[in-house]
Computed example of a mutant assay.
Amino acid sequence: MRYTLVFIASILASPVAAQTGLPPAPYADQQLADPAKEAAARDLMEELRCLKCQSQSIADSNAPMAGDMRSQVRERIAAGETPDQIRNWLVERYGSWVTYDPPVTPMTWPLWIAPIFLLIAALWLARGRFRRKKDDS
């Protein structure tokens, strides 16, 4: 019985153990004093994907990693780097997947071409379906 209680307690405590013990990044939720720099940082954060959440931008995500990335963006903007320089640094660090607008490269060609092929295939199938119905009439 005691082992069962220990087992249940360890399962219930695992989400708490998964939380980071580190303090939050300094600029994760604190805006820059300069409104123009904060606007540039905010625009860039909307274009960057949270690596943990995957479907949210780092501006919208509450994940600790997104907070770290927001802090990095704000610190680098405050230091005078341009959004393009910061985006390039993040792409070098995490890969082009970190941006919502990945560049067209031989590795990403299938991602850009697949929707066109799917549209052509759908039109071809629909054409055959409509042609068959017309012939039946």
Rank of each mutant, 00 (worst) to 15 (best):
L119G: 12
A78G: 05
R132Q: 15
A63N: 11
A17E: 01
C53I: 03
A36N: 07
A121F: 05
L51C: 01
E38C: 10
A9D: 02
T20M: 04
N88C: 00
S10K: 02
L51R: 08
K37T: 04
E75S: 12
A33N: 09
G21P: 00
S55F: 11
L51A: 04
P26E: 09
A114P: 01
I113W: 03
Q19G: 01
P35S: 12
Y27F: 15
S14Y: 07
W112E: 01
P15C: 14
P26Y: 03
M45Q: 15
P23E: 08
S14I: 06
E92Y: 06
L5T: 05
D34R: 08
D136P: 00
R49M: 06
P23V: 07
A18M: 14
M65L: 12
Q56G: 02
L12F: 13
P115D: 08
D29N: 12
D101Q: 12
Y3Q: 11
P115Q: 08
I58L: 12
L5H: 09
L118V: 07
E75F: 05
W124E: 01
L118M: 13
E75H: 06
A25H: 03
W109G: 00
S61Q: 10
Q30E: 12
I8C: 11
V6E: 08
Y3A: 07
P102L: 08
A36V: 14
A25L: 05
V91P: 05
E81M: 12
R74A: 06
E75A: 15
A40C: 03
I8K: 05
I116S: 07
A114G: 06
P83L: 03
A122Q: 04
A126L: 15
R70I: 05
P64A: 07
E38W: 07
V91L: 05
A36K: 14
I116T: 12
D43F: 14
R129K: 11
N62W: 07
I8P: 01
S14N: 00
A41K: 03
Y27H: 11
K134L: 14
K133W: 13
K133H: 11
D29V: 03
C53Q: 10
T82R: 02
L123I: 15
R76I: 01
S55A: 05
N62R: 13
Q31V: 06
P83N: 02
P110R: 10
A79S: 12
A18N: 07
R129V: 09
G95S: 04
Q85P: 01
S96W: 03
W124V: 10
A17L: 15
A79E: 09
A13W: 10
Q85A: 15
A39R: 14
S96C: 02
I116G: 10
L32D: 03
W89E: 05
P110S: 11
R93H: 09
G67Y: 04
P103A: 14
S61H: 08
K133A: 14
S57K: 08
S96M: 12
T4E: 09
L44M: 09
W97F: 13
L123C: 14
A9N: 06
R127I: 03
Y3C: 04
I8D: 03
D34V: 06
S57F: 13
T108H: 07
L90H: 01
A78F: 02
D29A: 04
F117L: 14
